[in-house]
Design a binder for these strands. Structure first.
Length: 283
DNA sequence: CCCCAGTCCTGCGGGC
DNA sequence: TGCCCGCAGGACTGGG
């Protein structure tokens, strides 16, 4: 499930397309329901063919391909989407192909097994409206602990649920939220309003540490094997997971507790009740 | 405004 | 052996 580290790895992996010209765009033959592309493909092609890619960036969990026309292509992987400059895992789930000229790569591919992902071409005004700071929170890698606290402290939600809110902070998803809170030693069910300054500092430091380590290892490829980098290679951070998908295993942090799985907001949370304690209720 | 449950999708694994 | 159902969790929508 691509979160900030996986999407950042995709971004770095396709950085070589800068300077390439888009010569064609096509939906690939696919029996499955087509993914969402906006505007519709004829207008998408009219506005992209002939343009040159000037920059590849990232906004939250989306890859942004900037064109010399000023427009941006937003590649949104959601659950199972991949952005590739190499052969895809298979042809069955290949959704969109950009033919390129003048650079190292001849193609840029969007592959998506489940098809929840999407591709959008947006003008600068629409980019600012949909992906600017008024819609999406500051990036999890670049904010300070004070800003993190400011964005979340008044929320009535549990800290783990609030960390998933892209409008508050952009980039953290279900997997890394559990990892971050375990390293920070903060209970996932703690209400944001109860988090102390010392805990905000720990959550912030853990966010940087976990996300940067995950980027270093090029993301997490889970047992379903879906996630791949832009060259269709697996990530390595799954071998460093502290809690995610490790239910009942002994906690590596305290060596005594066992990892538990609970459900918050219909999503799995993993934690160690010995490392991550709730404050004792006053009577 | 804030928050939550439901929805979109496909493939996989468990139960029978 | 095959079928059905539940589950995985990104972002968005409608409703309270």
């Amino acid at each position: 499930m691509p979160e900030l580290p996986e999407v950042e790895t995709m971004r770095r992996g396709i950085a070589g397309v800068v300077g390439s010209q888009i010569v064609n765009v096509e939906r690939t033959p696919c029996r499955l329901k087509p993914i969402r592309v906006s505007p519709q493909l004829s207008a998408f092609k009219r506005r992209t063919i002939g343009t040159t890619i000037t920059e590849v960036s990232r906004v939250g969990k989306r890859v942004v391909v900037v064109l010399d026309s000023g427009d941006s292509i937003i590649l949104e992987p959601r659950m199972t989407g991949l952005v590739l400059v190499a052969d895809p895992p298979n042809e069955d789930h290949l959704r969109l192909r950009f033919y390129l000229r003048g650079g190292k790569s001849r193609e840029l591919l969007f592959w998506d097994r489940r098809g929840l992902g999407s591709v959008h071409l947006v003008r600068p005004e629409e980019f600012a409206e949909r992906y600017g700071l008024s819609t999406l929170g500051p990036d999890a890698l670049t904010l300070t602990w004070q800003i993190m606290r400011e964005r979340l402290r008044s929320s009535k939600r549990e800290i783990k649920v609030a960390l998933l809110d892209q409008g508050a902070i952009a980039g953290i998803g279900n997997l890394y939220a559990s990892e971050i809170l375990h390293l920070a030693k903060v209970h996932p069910e703690l209400s944001c309003t109860e988090v102390t300054a010392a805990q905000w500092k720990r959550i912030h430091a853990a966010t940087l540490e976990v996300l940067e380590a995950a980027i270093f290892h090029e993301g997490s490829t889970l047992s379903d094997g879906t996630y791949r980098n832009a060259l269709n290679k697996e990530g390595g951070y799954q071998n460093h997971h502290r809690v995610y998908d490790r239910e009942e295993e002994v906690c590596t942090q305290c060596g005594k507790g066992h990892i538990q799985r609970i459900v918050q907001a219909q999503r799995s949370t993993f934690f160690c009740a010995r490392c991550q304690r709730l404050p004792r209720k006053r009577t």
